[in-house]
Amino acid sequence: MTEESDTAPRGANILLVEDEVNIALALKFLMERMGHVVTHIDDGAAALAQVEALAPDLVLLDVTLPGASGYEICQYIRGCRALDRARVLVLTARGADIERRKALALGADGFMSKPFEMAELQARVAELLASPREV
């Protein structure tokens, strides 16, 4: 298990939208270990319905989801004024360049393809949380 930096932001409100149970378990564990509060939703439609109310600081978003795709959720978040400051980090298994471009075009702040090193994920999360999003 890697050691987190003491200067990394802590206590952020993270929404994890991931339908793979084991991955969700691991990511939730990791984020909570970093000192953040994690809400896990495993369905895209449910995430669309709840994201505004949850007002997360960061959304860890899988692309392939039941109910609504990660792209749809990302576009919704970017179109919702109340969520202007929420960062979106898209996580996907495939990593094809076209998926990266599509995610970034829809307003994602970052894109990572699995498998990724936990240290890399932690660093990206810390980086996104540390820099306020320009609205």
């Binding site: 793979e20 084991n22 991955i23 691991a26 392939t64 699995k114 990724f116």
Partner: peptide, 19 residues
């Protein structure tokens, strides 16, 4: 392939969770 890729990626991701 898509399914196997996802599962393999998840497995690999989990394996990197701990040393």
């Amino acid at each position: 392939i898509e399914d196997m890729r996802r599962k393999a990626a998840n497995l690999d991701t989990l394996s990197r969770l701990r040393a």
